[in-house]
Design a protein around this nucleic acid. Structure first.
Length: 473
RNA sequence: GGCGACAUCGCCAAGUGGUAAGGCAAGGGUCUGCAAAAUCCUUAUCCCCGGUUCGAAUCCGGGUGUCGCCUCCA
């Protein structure tokens, strides 16, 4: 399988450090508010990648950090901490805020059917390790102390910028770097910040303060996954400076390569432009549901665009995704009812499977992967209408879809079968009654049953032999 | 000002040298008591200009346009 590596800027054959095991670190959320669907796009890509690696037979060890100590809005001491800001607005302790939104995040993940990472370590629970790495960097001469704050001395790390394409000279030339007099060089970033005004404080060898915001990822990746990890994912905005700083910290401290494959996920746009609060186009999962769309449709939408391409969110697009899913689910309902003469379906499925993998192997070519589903549906429908699909064949197709869905997670394979209990039997009883009415050409009663069920959100569909039903989405 | 990405049918989106997958939407037909579903058919020469090549959406150069990052952000 190939993955595009942001570091080398080309697709590379993926090879894990240890055979059969992949270590993956995902930049996770800062829990100072409800996460947007944009955030979830990047988490969904990590999920897709993990699911596919598992499909390929790897064991995947996945860590996603929870940032529960605020980042500064800039590297100066005067920066504002988002968590603290929120805490002040809501008149609460920052820890309360973080806890509340972390919980909300975890619920969202479940609702989006994102498989859980092995661990979601919190930044505030790793302050000791952060202090340790700062001490190592100081000892090795990569950092310096000024006024009880510690800065990274980037002049000592010439590789800085190799990920984003920036160079230190460019950064100065770019003149957006704010000059903070106490730093040796304007681009040096903070490892430890002394600022009595900050609410959250920890003790350190340099007095009380709080850690620089790039440290947590270096520390947690190292602690849970090792000094060199296979894959590191994050939104494209993290590439610079965050990931550059992680590299500088980890590689200087450990003397080893930090990450073999960097995966950066392009941003989700809304109506062709940046998602931003001022434009009022930042949507949460709740917003999506409130407008009557299913989260499964959202998952499909967010997953259906290649991760290295901006995906443009519109409600029109979401509607289209929902329609597409309906088509797949209709096919499954149909599949559950067939029972005709036999034809060998295994070869066909083998073919689709290898196509699916051929696409996904190529840097997660999701569009190609999805097209396999539609090809399968088209071919299967033809076989069904030719009465060539037996119950056993239908089962095999279902098993195939289940396998693919272990990677995609966008198909509801259970459909009507789940959580209905007695209701299910009642519905089928009514369908039976309607069949009698139909046989006697009592269209009034037949339509009455159909319409009444429809009002209860149960859609009947007459196929050639039987009537199938499903819950309306 | 610096760094980077992208530009393919009405919309979304594959395709990285051999004459354009797939989804949505639209139109027409079949099936059906009607409806829904299903199904069949129809719709592009790939932003512009120039070059390389027997041959380019695919490579090179130059335009134009869009988007992102450079300050916390997935």
């Amino acid at each position: 399988m190939k993955l595009y590596n942001s570091l080398t800027k080309r697709k590379e054959i993926f090879k894990s450090i240890k055979p059969g095991l992949v270590t993956m670190y995902n930049c996770g959320p800062t829990v100072y508010g409800i996460q947007s669907i944009g955030n979830y796009r990047s988490f969904l890509v990590a999920d897709l990648l993990k699911r596919y690696l598992i499909h390929k037979g790897y064991q995947v060890k996945q860590i996603m950090n929870i940032t529960d100590v605020g980042h500064l809005t800039n590297d100066s001491d005067a920066g504002e901490d988002k968590l603290e800001k929120r805490a002040q607005e809501e008149n609460k302790d920052p820890r309360e805020i973080a806890k509340f939104y972390e919980e909300a995040f975890k619920q969202d993940i479940e609702r989006l059917k994102i498989n859980k990472a092995d661990k979601y370590p919190r930044a505030t629970e790793h302050i000791d390790e952060m202090i340790k790495i700062i001490q190592i960097l100081l000892k090795k001469g990569y950092a310096y102390e000024i006024n009880k704050s510690i800065y990274y001395d980037l002049a000592k790390f010439p590789d800085y910028g190799k990920l984003s394409g920036n160079s230190l000279e460019d950064l100065i030339a770019g003149k957006r770097v704010e000059i903070i007099p106490e730093k040796k060089n304007p681009y040096d970033f903070a490892l430890w910040i002394h600022n009595p005004a900050h609410i959250m404080q920890w003790q350190s060898p340099w007095g009380s303060g709080y850690p620089g915001w790039h440290l947590e990822c270096s520390v947690m990746a190292n602690k849970y996954l090792g000094e060199t990890i296979d894959i590191h994912t994050g939104g494209e905005d993290n590439k610079f400076p965050h990931h550059e700083c992680e590299i500088a910290q980890s590689e200087a401290a450990n003397g080893k390569k930090f990450v073999n494959y960097w995966i950066h996920i392009k941003h989700l746009l809304v109506n062709g432009g940046k998602m931003s609060k001022s434009l009022g186009n930042v949507f949460s999962l709740q917003d999506i549901e409130d407008r009557g769309y299913s989260l499964l449709a959202l998952r499909y939408f967010l997953i259906s665009g290649h991760y290295r391409q901006n995906l443009n969110f519109t409600f029109e697009g979401l509607k289209a995704a929902e329609n597409t899913l309906t088509k797949i689910h209709n096919f499954i309902s149909q599949l559950k009812t067939v029972d005709n003469e036999k034809v060998n379906v295994e070869e066909m499925l083998e073919n689709y499977k290898s196509n699916f993998e051929k696409y996904l192997d190529d840097d997660l070519n999701i569009s190609g992967g999805l097209s396999v589903i539609f090809d399968l549906i088209k071919q299967s429908n033809k076989l069904i209408s030719d009465n060539k699909i037996s119950k056993m064949n239908a089962q095999k197709i279902m098993d195939f879809l289940r396998e693919i869905n272990s990677v995609l997670g966008v198909i509801d394979l259970e459909g009507n079968d789940e959580n209905l209990g007695v209701q299910k039997e009642l519905i089928e009883l009514l369908i039976l009654a309607r069949a009698e009415f139909k046989k006697n050409k009592n269209w009034v009663m037949a339509d009455k049953i159909r319409n009444s069920l429809s009002e209860l959100n149960i859609q009947l569909k007459d196929t050639e032999n039987v009537t199938i039903w499903e819950i309306k989405g």
